[in-house]
Design a protein around this nucleic acid. Structure first.
Length: 461
RNA sequence: GGCCAGGUGGCAGAAUGGUCAUGCAGCGGCCUGCAAAGCCGUUUACGCCGGUUCGAUUCCGACCCUGGCCUCCA
């Protein structure tokens, strides 16, 4: 049974869905005003592994990951670049889709876009107005009345008085209280807007998640996730809205993943210290990136620099090496002690998604593969099959490198390897080394062993 | 200032009241024409000060330090 750290109680507890047959998961995805960076990649991979593990444990999961395609940043960026907001977001949604596929993410079961659910948001706002949790301000905006929600601050462990001290009111806002936040922003001539009973405008940021999560997953929602930075104010506000509108605790569990850190600060667009997913994939490849993320625990900060990614690439080579030592058992047989390995692996993930520990199990298995490869090849093949299956639960070993385009036909490589073998037999080592070096140039790695020379494509980066 | 999360060996990073994490790097050996891969062995830890305990890196308290949130942010 999976135990997860609960952001609200700050304790670990078993994750028990409201309905036995299905677990509803809602994750705050991305705002499409620019390309995604490694911080987003971490979030995406963490929840990807969570979903994989839940499903491998026999749970049916309904995974919803939203896309924010209307907000201040999109409007601002659109204005700066001269591209209409809808076109900008459409382009970035496309870019996001490419990143998601390249990262090897499972597709979400639903990927709702805010602009397609404005009707649902208007309904939630209407309920809040009806129940007296919201008010219409003089400037046409609709605000949430935080003073009406006594447990405000419970998720972020903050007291409203403390928050009020540092709160800021933007020019043009007409809040009764600095903590109040916009549910609906009155229409402006150069901004996208929708009709609503209280006047045309566009939704505030937080309301989309309250509306889309409940309309797609129902009430209550078993688990809601996102990055650490969304805890406050986004998720705090979402709780205030949803719980007030539906008259019940809508989200049963909250979880948050830690940041990607560059040097001593977090990776962020505003700090300019980011690397986009696209660039990182070009440099390191999806599997190395995933290993980099999974070698840290999801709640800890994850350090980024070139060295860390190179490290992950080495780790990947170690894992992949097992598949060269032995192919997975073609008849689908696992080792006789598979249950014990699977148990260790599952226990690690059940323990608040301890992916570093789960990877350690995989590496232990790799060692046994190499130990057995020569003497007990059948046993090694069974181990490799198990390795592939367990790795799959982390989203590893998905791509088949053999399908990649190669600069040289395999037959040509074979021919050169044979030529080198003859040179070695004649003790012409200079020539042999030259052939080996030339092959390395095009990405072929040679390894001489007792049973001859093995060669393989270097599947970096 | 308030609230959270941390401080583990050269780097990264887990677990754990008394015994192996794991990956990378280092060192010695095996293998080898050389190399690579691999196997075996091995060095370097638990921020600081008290307390509990037969025994603490692990539990408790104080202190020091780091990161994050408190404003848009995965």
């Amino acid at each position: 049974m999976l135990e997860l750290y609960d952001s609200r109680t700050a304790h670990r507890a078993p994750l028990i869905p409201a309905r036995a047959d299905r677990l509803g998961l809602y994750v705050c995805g991305v705002t499409v005003y620019d390309e995604c960076h490694l911080g987003h990649a971490r979030m995406l991979v963490v929840y990807d592994v969570l979903v994989r593990h839940l499903r491998a444990s026999g749970r049916s999961v309904h995974y919803v990951r939203n896309i924010t395609d209307v907000d201040d940043k999109i409007i601002r960026r659109a204005r700066e670049t001269g591209i209409p907001p809808s076109e900008l977001s459409a382009r970035m949604i496309e870019a996001f889709g490419r990143d998601a596929r390249a990262l090897g993410l499972l597709p979400a079961d639903a990927e709702p876009r805010a602009t397609a659910h404005v009707g649902a948001m208007i309904e939630v706002i209407a309920r809040l107005l009806e129940r007296g949790f919201a008010y219409r301000a003089s400037n046409g905006d609709v605000y949430y009345d935080v003073s009406r929600f006594p447990t405000y601050g419970a998720l972020a462990h903050r007291r409203p008085e403390d928050l009020r001290a540092g709160a800021r009111v933007e020019i043009g806002e007409a809040k009764d209280d600095p903590l109040d936040f916009a549910l609906w922003k009155a229409a402006r001539p150069d901004e996208p807007s929708w009709e609503a009973p209280w006047g045309a405008g566009r939704p505030g940021w937080h309301i989309e998640c309250s509306a889309m999560s409940t309309s797609l997953l129902g009430v209550p929602i078993d688990l809601h996730g996102g990055g650490e930075d969304l805890k406050f104010p986004h998720h705090e506000n979402e709780i205030a809205q949803s719980d007030a509108a539906f008259g019940t605790e809508v989200v049963r569990r909250w979880m948050h993943n830690g940041f990607v850190q560059v040097g001593h600060e977090k990776m962020a667009k505003s700090l300019g210290n980011f690397l986009t997913i696209r660039e990182a994939l070009e440099r390191y490849g999806a599997e190395s990136l995933r290993l980099w993320i999974l070698q840290g625990h999801y709640r800890q900060p994850l350090l980024f620099d070139e060295e860390k990614l190179v490290l992950a690439r080495q780790a990947r080579a170690r894992l992949r090496g097992a598949f060269r030592a032995a192919p997975p058992d073609p008849e689908g047989r696992e080792p006789t002690d598979a249950d014990s390995w699977r148990g260790r692996f599952t226990d690690a993930l059940d323990d608040d998604l301890n992916t570093p520990e789960a990877l350690a199990v995989l590496f232990d298995l790799v060692r046994r593969v190499h130990r057995d490869a020569a003497e007990e090849p059948a046993a090694a093949r069974r181990d490799v099959l198990l390795l592939r299956r367990l790795g799959g639960r982390l989203g590893l070993f998905a791509d088949d490198p053999s399908t990649r385009p190669r600069p040289l036909a395999d037959a040509e490589v074979e021919e050169r390897v044979a030529r080198r073998r003859r040179a070695r037999e004649e003790r012409k080592f200079a020539e042999a080394d030259q052939i080996r070096a030339a092959l390395l140039e095009v990405g072929v790695i040679l390894e001489d062993g007792p049973e001859g020379t093995r060669w393989y494509w270097n599947d970096g980066p």
